[in-house]
Design a protein around this nucleic acid. Structure first.
Length: 909
RNA sequence: GGGCGGUUAGCUCAGCGGUAGAGCACUACAUUGACAUUGUAGGGGUCACUGGUUCGAUCCCAGUACCGCCCA
């Protein structure tokens, strides 16, 4: 017996265990031996993370696809795993150490600290996996991988070595985005540009050979800057070559205030004559654009900052070069050295102002780069880092999408992908962190680099190079997390070993992810997959929206608007959450989730539960020997057809990744067709005494419910599986699993006559109910029916559905003949149904109602008439459209006739 | 500055050349033997604006306004 109420928490855990016990998620199951593979690799969540709504959406959609394809007979591999998430995890553990008052990572030392992270990974690594299981994710958990597993680490080393050998990974000294808080380089993608209200400081730089006079503009040149503290590292002033104001000055020098360095005035198109004074200071060590200008003009690169963004002037060779070390400068160096960048800014501004070098300060709106993890203002910083030649790797990746070997859904994301890929910059992959894959590069005593998969390899190469054993030191840095993520689509299958899984499951079928990681992840997987596997990593990329709160704001802990998916699961069940997310998946970029929506779909599960209870109470048990095509009752033939129609709609929608349409189709079918109509229509049969009709109807009700459970299963796996198992005769339990059952396909069950007849019946009942409500006929009152002008067919229909009509329309008796005076009348096709209700209803109101009906139909007729009068419409519109309009007009005119007759009858009282 | 997306019922959003839809909310009625986590009925929309294409435009095209995102 099913419980009286739907309570998901009572069975979701058991259902999941039953799946796992049956190894139903396993790829390469025996029953799928000859089957086509279907592969999805999970976007690996952070190993120490916990489930948020983004994960819930992402994994629900993957699970819907995977369950759908598994039921369609494919050999499904949904490859799960977690990501080590370098910076995020390291930060988290560091914060933990701080909170617990333990020594920080430096005090602890690298080895111990890493050990500590592994410990934390062991403790918390299963949290996210358990949470995905609660959501119902049917990943092959036996194949769970972690980006720092030995196998995957080997893949990382091999890729590094091979790309290095091919010249696609190299070490370079250039400006990087330096995070002075985390003390590491980060890639362009990890930098967030934030628009900020700041200032533009206009500085007077005195021209060499003239006596500086703040009141005489001919003695100085004005430069505008947003970062005055970097002026200590200026090595030129640039003006536009066509800027006539400065033509005479090009080639001359200025004397840098405070420092006294003599620097040239150069002509370079980088400076914009429209902006500020038209002259800009050039600081190659602290600005990406200036770096390029410096390169073009062979300027000195004078770094005046330390790694933690403090002024570093003492013993700074570049700074002191070509500068006269006056006692005053000595004092300045002492005063400024070690001062943090923002404090230094203030000091320098004050000093410039006192000495007359500050012309003016303007408010200025500009974007400032921030680290996405630390939030610190990023410092362009000159360092040695490892780079990937992304431009070269991008070419085949662009080509593959252009040729359609990989397609994006929705398609318009392809342009985003192209735009970025076509303008791609070298990818900085080294990070000054401890948690991650340590770069497989070793340095000889003279700094010579040996890249090899392991230390032995490096030693051997060094021995060959030096002719003897030399001590080697390994590069301390680790790789960007996304470097290993980029290999995910094949490293998880066992590459570089030639495993059967690599052969069978690569390339994968679909990648499901949010648009926020198109650059971070999709692009890199495309590049790496094509380079190492010579085949795209996935045929289709399905891009879904991001989940926001009900006000459309990004969910964040600091805003306190985070909806925890596990709470939703606790309150409404995993199925309700999954269905909600599927139904909302169509949305463009954001999904604004509210719990009322989830509640609504929980109610849907309740509805299904109760329908199953109804089936149970009426012995509607699945019968293996039942052929739905053999049904004799119209209502049964009709529902069989509706079921098939729905099946086709769901299938088609899922094939096209239209999750919302698929969910909508099955929702509408179960609630508004099966429950609202079919179950109501068959009640008289089930309660009647025609045993043959009862048997057929029970079997059909059970058959359709089974089909409904199948179609709903990808979206609501728990409740459907539970009902599937329990929908057997008392004491029995279905052995087969729904999730491994065969997805319904067409078997020719649709029937035009049955559709027409049940359509007529539904219309009749609906109109009667509507009129009753409008005429304020109390729901409890049973009314008689008198039907005029009924054709033989209509009479037969009334006979067939006699009991049903009486029950659903609350009818007392049904007679054919002349309508008694004072009837409420309903026009239904050729017949007019009269409800003789003298004394019960208000005739003025009835007259009014009929008139409104007539007006409505007449206005429709007018519209159609105008259309048909239009010769161009007749000649240019497709024939079937014209025909359809004609038919509608004829029907409408007939209806008006009937309605006018009805009014006459009413008036003839 | 460049690019992308949005503007449809009170709210959140589907639809996208031929009679405007869903969920929630709202109103009225109803406890009839699956279901109040319910049923029945109902109200509510010049589909942002202006032009164009078309026999016909919420839908296609162009422009405008406002909102949002990405990139520089």
């Amino acid at each position: 017996m099913l419980d009286k109420n739907y309570q998901p928490q009572n069975f979701e855990g058991d259902v999941y265990r039953a799946w796992e016990d049956a190894r139903a998620f396993a790829a390469g199951r025996g029953d799928r031996e000859g089957a086509r593979p279907y592969t999805i690799v999970i976007p690996p969540p952070n190993v120490t993370g916990s489930l948020h709504l983004g994960h819930a959406l992402n994994n629900t959609l993957q699970d819907v696809l995977v369950r759908f394809e598994r039921m369609r007979g494919r050999d499904v591999l949904w490859q799960p795993g977690t990501d080590h998430a370098g910076i995020a995890t390291q930060m988290m553990v560091e914060r933990q150490l701080m909170e617990r008052g333990e020594p920080d990572r430096r005090a602890m030392g690298r080895e111990k600290f890493i050990e500590r992270i592994w410990q934390w990974k062991e403790e918390s690594g299963n949290t996210i996996v358990d949470q995905l299981k609660r959501l119902g994710a049917s990943c092959d958990w036996s194949r769970l991988r972690f980006t720092m597993d030995e196998g995957l680490s080997r893949a990382v080393r091999k890729v590094f070595v091979e790309l290095h050998r091919a010249g696609l990974i190299y070490k370079d000294k250039r400006l990087v985005n330096w995070d002075p808080e985390l003390l590491t380089a980060i890639s362009d993608l990890e930098v967030e540009q934030i628009e900020t209200k700041g200032h533009l400081w206009h500085l007077r730089y005195p021209i060499e050979g003239k006596t500086f006079d703040a009141g005489d503009p001919s003695t100085f040149i004005v430069v505008a800057t947003t970062r005055p503290e970097t002026m200590l590292g200026d090595s030129a002033v640039a003006v536009h070559p066509d800027d006539e104001r400065y033509t005479d000055l090009v080639g001359k020098n200025i004397i840098l205030p405070i420092v006294g360095r003599r620097i040239p005035i150069i002509a370079d198109e980088y400076s914009d004559p429209e902006k500020g004074s038209g002259a800009v200071k050039i600081t190659p060590a602290h600005d990406f654009n200036d770096f390029e200008v410096g390169r073009r003009h062979g300027l000195a690169i004078i770094n005046v900052l330390s790694k933690d963004a403090c002024l570093a002037l003492q013993s700074n060779e570049a700074f002191l070069q070509d500068v006269e070390l006056t006692p005053q400068l000595k004092a300045t160096i002492l005063e400024y050295n070690g001062v943090f960048r923002f404090a230094a800014r203030k000091m320098i501004i004050e000093r410039l102002e006192t000495e007359g070098y500050l012309e003016k300060i303007e408010p200025h709106l500009h974007t400032i780069p921030h680290g996405d993890r630390s939030g610190a203002v990023i410092e362009p910083f000159l360092t040695d880092q490892w780079y990937v030649d992304a431009a070269t790797l991008a070419k085949p990746a662009i080509d593959a999408v252009k040729r359609g070997r990989t397609t994006f859904v929705p398609k318009n994301w392809e342009s985003t992908y192209f735009h970025w890929m076509e303008n791609i910059q070298p990818w900085c992959i080294s990070r000054q962190l401890w948690w991650g894959h340590q770069i497989p590069a070793w340095y000889g005593p003279d700094g010579k680099i040996f890249v090899a998969e392991d230390e032995e390899g490096a030693k051997a190469a060094a021995k060959e190079h030096y002719g003897k054993d030399e001590p080697l030191e390994r590069d301390e840095d680790v790789l960007d997390t996304w470097f290993s993520s980029g290999l995910w689509s094949f490293s998880t299958l066992g590459w570089p070993d030639e495993t059967p899984e690599v052969a069978r499951y690569y390339p994968t079928d679909v990648l499901v992810t949010g648009f926020d990681i198109i650059f971070f992840w999709i692009a890199r997987m495309m590049m790496m997959g094509l380079h190492f596997m010579e085949e795209v990593p996935f045929r289709t990329v399905y891009i879904h929206a991001l989940v926001r709160d009900e006000k459309g704001q990004k969910m964040s802990k600091s805003k306190g608007n985070v909806i925890n998916p596990l709470e939703l699961i606790d309150n409404y069940g995993a199925d309700a959450l999954r269905f909600t997310l599927s139904a909302m998946a169509a949305q463009g970029r954001d999904i604004k989730l509210s719990s009322s929506r989830v509640e609504g779909y929980r109610n849907f599960a309740t509805k299904l539960w109760n329908a199953s209870r109804f089936a149970e109470m009426n012995d509607c048990v699945p019968r293996a020997d039942f052929d739905p095509g053999s049904a004799k009752l119209v209502v049964n033939r009709w529902i069989a057809g509706e079921t098939e129609r729905t099946g086709a709609a769901v299938t088609e929608a899922l094939e096209a990744f239209r999750f919302n349409d698929a969910a909508g189709a099955v929702y509408h079918f179960i609630w508004h067709i099966y429950c609202d109509w079919y179950l109501e229509l068959i009640k008289p049969v089930l309660m009647g005494d025609d045993e043959a009709a009862k048997a057929e109807t029970r079997a059909m009700a059970a058959f359709v419910l089974d089909r409904a459970l199948q179609l709903l299963h990808p979206f609501m796996p728990f409740v459907t599986e539970e009902l599937w198992a329990k929908r057997m005769p008392e004491g029995e339990h279905r052995e087969s699993l729904l999730m491994l059952s065969e997805w319904p396909t067409r078997q020719g069950l649709q029937n035009v006559e049955a559709d027409a007849e049940i359509g007529w019946l539904i219309k009749l009942v609906t109109e009667v109910r509507s009129v009753r409500a409008e005429m304020n006929v109390p729901a409890g009152v049973k009314v008689p029916f008198v039907i005029a002008d009924a054709s033989a067919e209509t009479k037969a229909r009334f006979a067939t559905h006699d009991e049903t009509i009486k029950r659903l329309a609350r009818v007392e008796t049904i007679d054919f003949g002349t309508l008694p005076s004072g009837s409420v009348q309903i026009v239904l096709e050729e017949a007019t149904v009269g409800l003789p209700l003298q004394g019960v209803i208000d005739f003025g109101a009835e007259q009014e109602r009929l008139r409104r009906e007539i007006d409505k139909v007449k206005s429709e007729i007018a519209q159609i008439t105008a259309k048909l009068a239009n010769k161009k419409f007749i000649s240019r519109a497709p024939t079937h459209v014209v025909e359809e309009q004609r038919e509608r007009k004829t029907e409408a005119e007939a209806t008006v006739g009937k309605l006018e007759q009805a009014i006459k009858r009413l008036a003839s009282l």
